[in-house]
Design a protein around this nucleic acid. Sequence first.
RNA 1: GGGCGGUUAGCUCAGCGGUAGAGCACUACGUUGACAUCGUAGUGGCCACUGGUUCGAUCCCAGUACCGCCCA
Length: 1034
Amino acid sequence: MPMEKTFSPAEAEARISALWIDQKVGRVGANAKPGAEAFSIMIPPPNVTGSLHMGHAFNNTLQDILIRWHRMQGHDTLWQVGTDHAGIATQMVTERDMAEHQEPNRRTMGREKFLARVWQQKVKSRGTIIGQLQRLGASCDWDREAFTMSGAPGAPAGEDGNFHDAVIKVFVDMYNKGLIYRGKRLVNWDPHFETAISDLEVENIEVAGHMWHFKYILADKQSYEYIEKDAEGHVTLREMRNYISIATTRPETMLGDGAVAVHPSDARYQSIIGKMVHLPLCDRLIPIIADEYPDPTFGSGAVKITGAHDFNDYQVAKRNTLPMYRLMDTRATMRADGAPYADAVKRAREIAAGSPTDENEVDALNLVPEKYRGLDRFEARKQVVADINALGLCVSTLHSEIDPETGSEHLTREPFVEAKKIMQPFGDRSKVVIEPMLTDQWFVDTAKIVGPALDAVRSGATKIIPESGEKTYFHWLENIEPWCISRQLWWGHQIPVWYGLNLDAPDFADDEGDDALDEVEILNFLGDGGHVDREARHHCAAEFATVSERFRDDLAALPHPLNNARIVEVADRHAAATLLAQSLADYNLSQDPTHLAYPIWRDPDVLDTWFSSGLWPIGTLGWPEQTPELQKYFPTSTLITGADIIFFWVARMMMMQLAVVDEVPFKTVYLHGLVRDAKGKKMSKSLGNVIDPLEIIDEFGADALRFSNAAMASLGGVLKLDTARIAGYRNFGTKLWNACRFAEMNGVWEGHKTQAQPPKATATANQWIIGETAKALSEVNAALKDYRFDNAADALYKFVWGKVCDWYVEFAKPLFDGPDAPETRATMAWVLDQSMILLHPMMPFITEDLWGTTGTRAKLLVHTDWPTYGAELINTEAATEMGFVTSLIEEIRSARAQVHVPVGLKCDLVATDLSPAARTAWTRNEALIKRLARIDTLTEGPAPKGSIAVAVEGASLSIPLAGLIDIAEEKARLTKTMDKLAKEIGGLKGRLNNPNFAASAPEEVVDEAKANLALREDEAAKLQAALKRLAEIG
RNA sequence: GGGCGGUUAGCUCAGCGGUAGAGCACUACGUUGACAUCGUAGUGGCCACUGGUUCGAUCCCAGUACCGCCCA
């Protein structure tokens, strides 16, 4: 059955993809030669509930190109595929799906049932992205699909695996090494998801905001002289003030102010540093302190300090040991918990006066006045502004208004509010305003593990390309902050830490020495409910049994029989306190020590997703088991990922792998930018410029998309995806297809079997194209070795279209009619085979399809040997000869076209002057020249009058066209060419005549310039002669 | 404000010491042997600007302007 006119991607891709999957062509080690070197790539695991976007398509195309290239070379390859559980995103997707299906919400459902529900969602979604990767032609090892939560408790059947165990083991190990700690820190809090998020998950967006100016009145009716000066030191304002003016964009946080800060060098406030001011709306005094943080040139130069709700203020508060009062709850509404305001503020005053306290007590104090309690933070802002204004404590301006009826003027004071652009933090998932919040979180002490990650890149153990990526990497890691790894979510790896009430009672004495607790002793022991408020103690271990042992050791120090209490797991602290009280009461009655229980509860938080994906390289290979895969494929060869996650993921994998197994996770990291639309805009749903890779594949085929991806992958380049370009590469595929179809029509494939080596060719055209193939291979190899996918694509495009289709197919046509036909058929078969092989990593579908239909093949193309031939296939004489032929043909065509010789007209060609090499080429390639330049006869002799002139290297030719051409037009054409030549000659002469050039330039450059000049002058002379002849005939 | 990068044909991008290339677009013309998803020929560039280094700068250095991206 003859070939169709075009390749049909829709049909062929489905068929071929099924074939590859069925035959497991991407399985680990497939097509590896014995003892081959390993080449491995970890896929950046896509979000399990996500779908393929252009970034994935681009990223996975490059990975597949490398993997197929290495696999064809017989290397032992692994492309590890899998998905990420993506904590917050997956929880969000599931909750949205639940809402759409009128299911109860997560809190009603409870943690366990909700997790089962998320697993359902995971199982349902997982196939989407995997199927999409397969449509793209990715040749991963599908049997090894991994998941960052495989093997977690509650995982359904089929979700086994040991990723969870690996994550927990790493947490426990790092905890034991002191690399993980718990602490109360200011973190980015997402009030929608009610969890901490990383600063990398925060988008700072400039929005229209306001700046309010408040007066804080000095205590004890004090006042001071306030003097403002201009740049020259002239006094511009001098007045007595009883207040200090502060500016804020977040008025509601003033309720938690701990101080007002001014710059120590700020002359205006020197006299009041250390004085107290009344905090408006609150029954509190706060100090004016000196700190480097305030910018004296900005606003009034005085800044309110709210340590619990602002990152800068937090640092100031820490430096100056100011109390940090948390004002909001987890949903960022003003706190409504705790003691009445009057009690809280009383205690706050005691603390301010020096009463000892700790951060837990401070955190428990709710200093939100009653009227604001329970208000949304933005509502509270309005109220606070209104109330401060009512007190006359806003900096205000006078507004005059004429009453339209009475004509009288009314003056009103209006608060001075500046409209101002402010940077506001938003959750990248929730899109709500992020609230800095003081909470207890777990942190990786990154300062302790960052060193090896920096060294690895500095020493070149891991190479990041493009090099600018290394700069970014260093910059970030050298300034690394502690990594908050706890998230207040349910979907994720639950932190392996259990808490127990602290029952230590150093002052307790068993009065009677009877080894039994009586009622009095129990009361003594519990003190004033002491353990209830004490910081709980905690232990970390992979499972309950181990952690119980630790708590048992703690209990050993307690009086009998408490030291023998049973360790029992309960839900939370509240349940623990209740159970302990019950247990003691029970014991009090029964005096039966076996009734005593010591309750412990597990940390409800889960780990940041990046903590687990940070272990992707070893986790997917079976660590901590020393699996054969781990030994063979780790460290992995290349990581290909977006530059936007160098911090999120790359840097963390580096730190984690080095901390855990003391090896770099990959030898090379290839970073690429965001895929944008044709105009360079980010693709976003709101702009409506999102290109769906599947739609592109439907329209143009996966090969076209893949080739486009490769072609635009210049190092550090911007990735602008233009469908016109994709269409162009679809056409490129068609071009190859039709060359094969042409071959088929000429019997090239009859009885064809794969030949690794080219046929022994005698015809110059055949020798030439064989050499061109070797050049193409070498260019592709060099380009791919340097990760220059664009250069590799370009080389292939130029070879297949520019050499094979444009020239070789045309040369073959006359050869098929002559004695060289069998050799030409064999050569064409070989050259097209090579084209399929070399193109296969980039265009796997069309090449695999052609491969299957054009000959007898031992293996699928995907497993066919990548060629190893080299320069020995290049025949320089053939190359020179064909160079002469092609430039001759091009010159003739150009000349004919310019003087409007009808394309259908066959002309004669007369050679006036031929060098020996040109003469050989001339006679040996007569058929080609005649056919492609539309020439009737080739003769040698003097140039006839009334002809057009053609000059090529080594030959002076003319086409007699007396009476057919417009002499003036031919003159104009030659003059134009002469002008161009004259310009080049002028430049070259100028250079060569400069004595400094000959003296300083390298010899070969001088020689090249000389040779160039000779060539140009020779051509100019030929054209000059032609012009002279034209002049003779008028 | 800090860091990184960019500015080359109408568009999208290569090139990065020896006076510029590709694809697309555009113009004209379409020949017996595959391909109109095509062929042939052609148009199109003070390589952002200003200095410097150099025999020579699109390329190296410094500065300016504008544009991105990341981080505050």
